[in-house]
Design a protein around this nucleic acid. Structure first.
Length: 764
DNA sequence: CCAGGCGAGTTTTTT
DNA sequence: ACTCGCCTGG
């Protein structure tokens, strides 16, 4: 079969590319995945490479799965060998399970997800019970991850960062890494870093894997971060057969360390690279494309592509401004209802910036009896009961896994309480051994109360029993044994409400299914655990679901007949935390572009000024998203920058546009060009000195931003109204950490201390 | 040691 | 509005 016949000239050029580096700049809907799939098939059919010598990397499991299916469709099944199509992370796990001993780890290492990470950091924070400057676990993880993704080791940390907290972070970072290592565990970032490290350390492995994967293809290259970039370089040093596909307009993972420069400077990194642009869009109507283009045009960091399509011009975009979030959901559900009536096969997506927004839509869709699928708010493998059981499996598999041990040591309660756990942890830290080993040593200790010692011994016996079993039974059988031994289900039924328990039991059933399937595929326990650690809810999206609810981020790579982008408000989208630097704002805009271009035929945009929010914006009417202001009016129908009757409906919200207040004077109403964006403070730092300045600069600006919005609101002497406490008088305001505390005396309830950011106060 | 109650902190996006 | 950690009384 001539597989080239189905391609347009540009796509064909890409697919037929020979050896050497190639960059395919592929706009949304221009057949990106298609090009990779066809190229893999082409390489195989023309015997350029044996299938097993081809490596294709994607970012999500879902993308990998899709790619595999597409390739199989083209080349047909029953090949002797298959190309390796995998995510960066699972490729790394695969590599490390074979080679990590070169770095002094054992091959049974555990993988720590965000939750495990948080637990570990909390322990470390306790251990170094320093901070005069309170750091939350979240913040610490964020900084460590930033450092890891930028190649900064703990030792270099204070050289590179100058903030007050830097020394604390350095110590935490150091300890955290030590604890990971002594637990024989890796976090997500480590998977990439250790892969790079092992290839850097072992030239013969570099050569081996470089030779083996003689053709490497990368999807969504614009989202690669530094370790991923390093990994690709290491694997392609010799042959340079790297074929990357990406779209700088769809780079939306900077917060995770993605570096858009990777795609922008590809031609410099790989001299002589062939560059191919795919500009014909096959997905969307002309109007949708024009709208998307008009928005993304406002960005400066682009290579610049102009998408065109032969599709018809299509409908205009329908907008709605709702009285409140509930009404917004009602409107959306109503539209969906009539869409589905007309076309029962339509795929519809409701896209939002942040997960918490799904709530109202779920409620209303349920009321109306419209079936829907939510993607991602709580991942299946992230659920408490699932994580508990997996932790049992993990500790059996890797007895050094401290986080897993601490998670289950007293779940269900078995008489090993906090006091005992503290003793064990302390002993373990002192000797530098895993907690389980400390537990073994203490189990018979006559100094402990007899009851405690007995509890420890019993627990140890259980673990030994399961460990002895692990090589002789299937995963399901092991699970079944554990479940019975610990009486987990009974615990749930005792502790939870009936419906909650039922839910959790159902999840346990599902986990057992997953285990059974895994073993049918002939996988080892490690492979099952790896899948659990690396899988996300997105992978479980039911392709038959007509209505899908998800974040804009999750929607990348997907397409739908109709798309609803909801919550189009300043502060939410673009998110308040992303409007202070041009870089961040441009990323938000790209996110908007991604959202718009998911739609094939019909796009809906909705917003409401009256969303309950937290933070400094609380209690104020929001403004319409600047992204909507950037769209050509003639493509919009029902465009309103304010709801028609807000005065009667929602008196407790103040309105930014018309009220004569401090707030209003400081931030004038909507204008074509929005103020408040700092002009180009975001030159990319090149040297260490520049990086220091950059970080300082960022911190100062975010501090200034939060003080700026807060300081003008409530001052001593002002009269205010609180939703619950009624009217009162502000006595004092003072800073406490990042917050501002107000002491207010209320006529009804007396003196109260409130945090300005959270108390939904209203000036009188 | 554990269960149940209160107060504080919290919502950006994810492999 | 919701979850997590801390405190208290059994």
């Amino acid at each position: 079969m001539d597989i080239l016949a189905k391609l347009n000239p540009q796509q064909r050029l890409a697919v037929e590319h020979g050896r050497g580096p190639a960059l395919v700049l592929a706009g949304a809907g221009s057949g990106k995945t298609r090009v990779i799939a066809y190229r893999i098939a082409y390489l195989i059919q023309n015997a350029a490479a044996r299938p097993e010598n081809i490596l294709a990397v994607t970012f999500t499991n879902k993308a990998a799965k899709e790619m595999r299916e597409r390739v199989q469709k083209i080349v047909g099944p029953s090949r002797r060998s298959e190309p390796l199509i995998s995510t960066f992370h699972s490729f790394c796990v695969r590599l490390l399970r074979r080679e990590i001993h070169h770095l002094g780890y054992k091959r049974d290492f555990s993988i720590y997800d965000t939750d495990d990470q948080t637990r570990l950091i909390k322990q470390v924070l306790e251990e170094i019970r320093n901070p005069d400057r309170e750091l939350t676990p979240r913040e610490v993880i964020g900084r460590i991850s930033f450092a890891k993704n930028h190649g900064i080791t703990p030792g270099q940390y204070t050289d590179r960062f100058l903030s007050d907290a830097a020394e604390d972070v350095q110590r935490l970072y150091e300890k955290y890494n030590e604890r990971l290592r002594s637990s024989n565990s890796l976090d997500f970032d480590d998977l990439l870093l250790k892969s790079v490290a092992v290839l850097e350390k072992m030239p013969e492995l570099r050569k081996y894997y470089g030779d083996w994967y003689s053709y490497i293809l990368v999807d969504e290259y614009q989202d690669t971060n530094r370790p991923q970039y390093d990994l690709l370089r290491l694997l392609t040093t010799v042959h340079k057969n790297i074929f990357v596909v990406g779209d700088e307009d769809q780079s939306i993972y900077k917060f995770r360390g993605a570096d858009i420069q990777n795609i922008l400077k590809f031609e410099k990194d790989y001299p002589g690279a062939r560059v191919i642009k795919l500009e014909q869009n096959y997905r969307s109507s002309q109007n949708i494309l024009r709208l998307a283009g008009a928005v993304v045009e406002n960005n400066t960091e682009r290579k610049g592509k102009t998408l065109w399509t032969e599709n018809e011009s299509g409908d205009v975009v329908t907008c709605s401004c709702a009285q409140n979030p509930r009404e917004e959901a009602v409107w959306v559900a109503g539209q969906i209802e009539s869409l589905l009536e007309e076309n029962p096969d339509y795929h519809v997506a409701v896209l939002y910036r942040a997960n918490f927004l799904s709530r109202n839509f779920e409620d209303v869709l349920t009321d109306k009896g419209i079936p829907y699928a939510v993607v991602g708010s709580v991942a299946f493998f992230g659920r408490m009961e699932v994580k508990d059981l997996l932790a049992y499996l993990r500790i059996v598999f890797n007895p050094e896994d401290d986080v897993a041990l601490l998670r289950i040591v007293n779940t269900p309660p078995r008489g090993i309480g906090q006091a005992t756990v503290d003793i064990l942890t302390e002993a373990a830290l002192e000797k530098g051994v895993p907690i389980l080993q400390a537990l073994r040593e203490k189990a018979g200790d006559p100094q402990l109360p007899a009851r405690t010692a007995r509890a420890l011994l019993r627990f140890q016996e259980l673990l030994d029993k399961w460990a002895a079993l692990q090589d002789h039974v299937t995963i399901s059988q092991l699970f079944e044994t554990i479940l019975q031994d610990i009486r987990y289900k009974e615990m749930l039924q005792k502790q939870e409400s009936a419906t909650e328990a039922e839910n959790r039991l159902a999840n346990i059933e599902e986990l057992m299914h997953a285990a059974a399937e895994s073993q049918q595929r002939g996988e080892a326990i490690s492979e099952f655990l790896d899948r659990a650690a690396l899988s996300s809810e997105l992978d479980h999206l039911d392709p038959n679901a007509r209505v899908a609810l998800m974040t804009l981020h999750s929607a990348k790579g997907l397409e739908f007949e109709s798309v609803f982008m909801v919550g189009m408000e300043e502060g939410l989208f673009p998110h308040a935390q992303c409007v202070n630097s041009r870089e961040d704002l441009e990323e938000e805009r790209r996110l908007c572009y991604v959202g718009i271009t998911r739609a094939k035929r019909k796009l809906f945009l909705s917003w409401t000024p009256y969303r309950k929010s937290y933070g400094p914006e609380a209690g104020f009417a929001a403004r319409i998203s600047r992204f909507m202001m950037e769209m050509p009016r003639e493509l919009l129908e029902g465009f309103e920058t304010e709801p028609p009757t807000y005065f009667d409906q929602r008196p407790r919200f103040r309105n930014r546009f018309y009220e004569d207040s401090d707030e209003y004077r400081r931030t004038p109403g909507p204008q074509p060009k929005w103020s408040g964006i700092r002009e180009d403070s975001t030159v990319r730092p090149k040297t260490i000195a520049e990086l220091k300045i950059y970080i300082e600069e960022k911190q100062r600006s975010s501090r200034a931003a939060s003080e700026g919005t807060q300081s003008s609101l409530f001052k001593p002497g002002m009269r205010v109204r609180h939703e619950q406490f009624g009217d009162g008088l502000v006595l004092s305001r003072e800073k406490s950490g990042n917050d501002i505390k107000l002491v207010i005396t209320f006529s009804r309830v007396g003196k109260k201390t409130l945090v300005e950011r959270y108390a939904k106060l209203k000036a009188l």
